[in-house]
């Protein structure tokens, strides 16, 4: 464990908590892409299948449980509890264009052709593009609530910090995982446009508005 990975996990956890609280407190999932949350639930499910078979540490196991539980709770709130507030007309990104290519790629490019490894690889590839429906929805509605932009910022920063974690691990542990690194780079690049808007607008107290 290193400071970058720890801060990254904290950032990821806070993004998940921010979103849960936003929906629960406001009893509304307006502006939130249910499709992205569905993709995140798939990412965590396919990545943490070794949750019960491969104990790494109490921290690792408890974080995985929190991630899986909160992602399902978020999907449940969007598609069931508060589905009246779900803005389906603007959440129209074709997720099959994300799931199919990443699934095929995980069969072609992986470290080991075994079910667990292919599912792990699929979850890494899918996570790198899972935010696209949400970013697409924000660009379609032309703006996002401030709390949603904080959620997106925390979510984007988490994988950016993981990039530094991988530099650290390459330097000091002679370890690197090209699949995770390349996917993490793609994931971070997808946020660049949003990071720019967040830093130039939201941090100045303005509302986040994208040129529609």
């Amino acid at each position: 464990m290193n400071i970058f990975r720890f801060l990254g996990d904290i950032s990821h956890l806070s993004a998940i908590i921010i979103l849960l609280l936003k929906i629960w407190k406001s009893r509304s999932c307006a502006g939130i892409s249910g499709k992205s949350q569905l993709l995140f639930a798939i990412v965590f499910t396919t990545r943490y299948l070794d949750l019960f078979t491969n104990f790494i540490s109490f921290y690792n196991t408890s974080m995985k449980v929190v991630y899986v539980a909160s992602s399902y709770a978020t999907v449940w709130m969007i598609y069931s509890k508060f589905k009246a507030t779900y803005d389906g007309n603007h959440d129209t990104f074709r997720v099959e264009f994300l799931i199919v290519p990443t699934a095929i790629l995980s069969f072609l490019v992986n470290h080991d052709f075994t079910p667990l490894e292919i599912l792990w690889t699929f979850s890494i590839y899918l996570e790198s593009v899972a935010i696209l429906p949400q970013l697409f929805m924000v660009s379609k509605t032309g703006e996002a609530e401030t709390i949603t932009s904080h959620y997106l910022f925390a979510l984007g920063i988490y994988r950016t910090l993981y990039l530094f974690n991988w530099i650290w691990r390459y330097q000091f542990e002679e370890f690197f995982d090209l699949i995770a690194i390349v996917a993490g780079l793609v994931q971070t690049v997808l946020y660049c446009d949003f990071f720019y808007l967040y830093i130039t607008k939201v941090l100045k107290g303005k509302k986040l508005s994208l040129p529609a």
Binding site: D9, H12, D50, H111, D112, F175, F176, A180
Partner: peptide, 10 residues
């Protein structure tokens, strides 16, 4: 040979 380091990561 890329070590699959990322398995102990979240």
């Amino acid at each position: 040979e890329a070590n699959t380091a990322a398995k102990d990561e979240l």
